[in-house]
């Protein structure tokens, strides 16, 4: 989809994210929430956590995807209006981390989502968990790269 420059600029300044906590350990989720709080305050960059995927521009995934969640995560991805981007926070979301050998996980988020949307674009912020500084840096880099 061709984006007009005005819209792209606005999108860069106002990425709203929907947080999809998956089968991870919760730690990345907490560091994400930490980014909203006074010390890091990502609202400076216009980032806002929203409660419905319909409002979101980016999907924040924070863990490996279990078999039980796989279909749901795929549906939520489709629930987001285009243009959309996936942000994989933490080693587990990127590569499954320590859960690589576990029997109950279906794969890292990018693989799962690409099954239904091959054109999906992702941003990876590895770390276990990434420090809030890292996440903020990651977000800023995403915005620059868009």
């Amino acid at each position: 989809m061709a984006l007009s420059p005005v819209f792209l600029k606005a999108l860069k300044r106002s990425p709203w994210v929907f947080h999809v906590g998956t089968s991870g350990c919760n730690n990345c989720d907490i560091e994400i929430a930490d980014c909203l709080t006074p010390r890091f305050d990502v609202e400076r960059f216009g980032v806002k956590l929203v409660g419905s995927p319909r409002h979101a521009d980016a999907m924040l995934v924070t863990g490996p995807i279990s078999h039980d969640l796989k279909g749901l995560v795929q549906q939520v991805w489709l629930d987001m209006p285009a243009p959309r981007v996936g942000v994989l926070v933490g080693t587990c979301a990127c590569t499954m981390g320590v859960y690589k050998d576990a029997y109950s996980v279906a794969g890292p988020a990018d693989k799962v989502i690409r099954e239904i949307d091959p054109a999906a674009r992702f941003v990876y912020i590895p770390g276990c968990p990434p420090k809030p500084e890292t996440i903020v840096m990651g977000i800023v880099k995403i915005l620059e790269a868009l």
Partner: peptide, 11 residues
């Protein structure tokens, strides 16, 4: 662009 999806009630 418009797309039809089922309602979102949490996944």
């Amino acid at each position: 662009a418009r797309r039809v999806r089922s309602v979102f009630i949490g996944g």
